[in-house]
């Protein structure tokens, strides 16, 4: 019968229309900004730099190795190395970024900087309400604006942050063990040297001990 298909389609629409009063599933609209959908844990928007401890500058994990600058596909990262050094999380003196700028008007949120970073220093933020009136200055984020605490990282990506912390703790332990071993070895060597020195009769020097 002509028109049967149309009637069938209309019935389907009516079912959906009536269904939207009873079924939560069919109501898909959320009234932003009053209502918000929680962001997915893996969500990524723009990168930020992580610092440990209370002081952002002292705790910055970045060592200005410039790998992310080189690998960034749209070249939105700009790094200047510092002249002096500051201790990193294991206490080794390291260079830090004197300048670290990310131009988020160029950044395309691809996460490649995070993947290539060997120091777990750069991670992806989930903050997306970044509109600003100043097109140039407002979207060029500097080191201070990029630095965010490890606690903040834990609050947005809890699973990933826990894994990173475990990895870093292991690294730190290994580094400490290595340092301890090195110190022990050095002490041993020094002792051995001293012993050797003491044992060997030195020409021209007054004989020590009870000869």
């Amino acid at each position: 019968m002509l028109g049967e298909g149309i009637v069938k389609g209309m019935l389907e629409t009516a079912k959906n229309f009536a269904g939207s009063f009873v079924s939560e599933d069919r109501l898909t609209t959320v009234e932003y900004p009053e209502q918000r959908i929680p962001t997915a844990e893996n969500a990524r928007v723009f990168p930020f730099l992580i610092y440990d401890g209370p002081d952002w500058h002292a705790g910055l994990r970045c060592v200005a190795c410039q790998i992310c600058e080189k690998e960034c596909p749209p070249k939105c990262i700009y790094i200047e190395k510092s002249k002096d050094k500051k201790p990193d999380f294991v206490g080794k003196p390291q260079i830090y970024p004197a300048r670290f700028d990310i131009d988020i008007s160029v950044c395309m949120s691809c996460q490649i900087c995070v993947e290539v970073c060997p120091f777990e220093a750069i991670k992806m933020d989930t903050e997306f309400e970044l509109a600003t009136g100043d097109r140039f200055g407002g979207l060029l984020l500097d080191c201070r604006e990029l630095a965010k605490s490890n606690e903040y990282y834990h609050s947005i990506h809890p699973t990933e942050a826990a894994e990173v912390d475990a990895r870093l703790a292991e690294e730190k332990k290994a580094a400490e063990a290595k340092a301890k071993a090195a110190a022990a070895a050095a002490a041993q060597k020094a002792a051995a040297d001293a012993a050797a020195k003491a044992a060997a009769p030195k020409p021209g020097a007054p004989a020590a001990g009870g000869s």
Partner: peptide
């Protein structure tokens, strides 16, 4: 199924 009920037999679409 819903999509097809809505469209496949629709005379205007045909």
């Amino acid at each position: 199924d819903e999509f097809e009920a809505l469209l496949t037999g629709n005379e205007i679409l045909m």
